[in-house]
Computed example of a mutant assay.
Amino acid sequence: MTTRWLTPKEQRAWRAYVAATSLVEDAIDRQLQQDAGMPHLYYSVLAMLSEAPERRLRMTDLAEVLKITRSRLTYAVARLEKDGMVRREACQYDKRGSLAILTDEGMATLERAAPGHVDTVRASLFDQLSEEQVEQLEAICSEIARGLQGDERAAADEVPWRRRASQPSVSGCT
């Protein structure tokens, strides 16, 4: 098969994308480390749990929402659990699964970190764009995500949350 090399226009777009996403992620991580002592992933776990019914989600569902591997999520939740921000329970309706539950302490931490996080997201990303560009950004990112996620019948290794870990998870059931 012949390699379809990027055109000069595509190469410029690719490099701009890599630079922008790296710089935005760096700004967010620095702010969250400074204000809350946690990386962006941990904040995202707390935020997703705060929006879930009863502040709880199955670990597999949480991995899918966050677009990460189950083993990476298990590690993050274990650290948050150690800090008292999340707890895990066995899933009553599926003995193989477990739930991640946001604690009151985790909610308080999230509420303290949220204003600085939003300010950083706004300053690093949205303040640089017009309203029309924000709509375009959403459309572009949504299309890319749709294309990469596949569908329910997609192979297990095509998306992070369906990949099998090479080692057993910490909890034994995710």
Results as ranks from 00 to 15, higher is better:
Arg72Trp: 00
Arg12Trp: 02
Arg72Ser: 12
Ser44Asp: 10
Pro115His: 05
Trp5Cys: 05
Asp83Gly: 03
Arg72Met: 02
Thr21Arg: 14
Gln128Asp: 00
Thr69Glu: 09
Thr7Gln: 01
Glu89Asn: 09
Pro160Leu: 06
Ala139Met: 07
Ala113Cys: 03
Cys141Pro: 00
Gln133His: 12
Met107Lys: 14
Ala155Asn: 05
Tyr43Cys: 07
Pro115Ile: 02
Ala47Met: 14
Pro115Cys: 04
Arg70Trp: 02
Thr2Cys: 00
Asp29Gln: 09
Ala113Ser: 06
Met59Lys: 04
Leu57Thr: 11
Tyr17Gly: 01
Gln31Ile: 04
Leu49Lys: 02
Asp83His: 07
Ile68Lys: 10
Lys67Tyr: 08
Gly172Gln: 08
Ala63Asp: 13
Arg146Val: 01
Ser44Ala: 14
Ser98Tyr: 04
Ala108Val: 05
Ala16Leu: 11
Gln149Phe: 00
Phe126Lys: 00
Glu131Ile: 11
His40Ala: 14
Leu46Ser: 06
Ala108Met: 05
Ser130Gln: 09
Ser50Trp: 07
Ser124Gly: 07
Ala78Glu: 08
Asp29Ser: 05
Val77Met: 03
Glu54Gln: 15
Thr74Tyr: 03
Tyr43Gln: 06
Ile101Leu: 13
Asp127Gly: 06
Lys95Ser: 11
Leu62Thr: 03
Ile28Ala: 11
Phe126Trp: 06
Leu49Ser: 02
Glu54Pro: 00
Val118Thr: 14
Ala76Phe: 04
Ala20Arg: 07
Ile28Lys: 13
Ala114Phe: 07
Asp26Ala: 14
Leu80Asn: 07
Ala145Thr: 03
Thr103Trp: 03
Gln136Tyr: 08
Glu111Ala: 12
Asp157Phe: 09
Trp14Thr: 02
Gln167Lys: 14
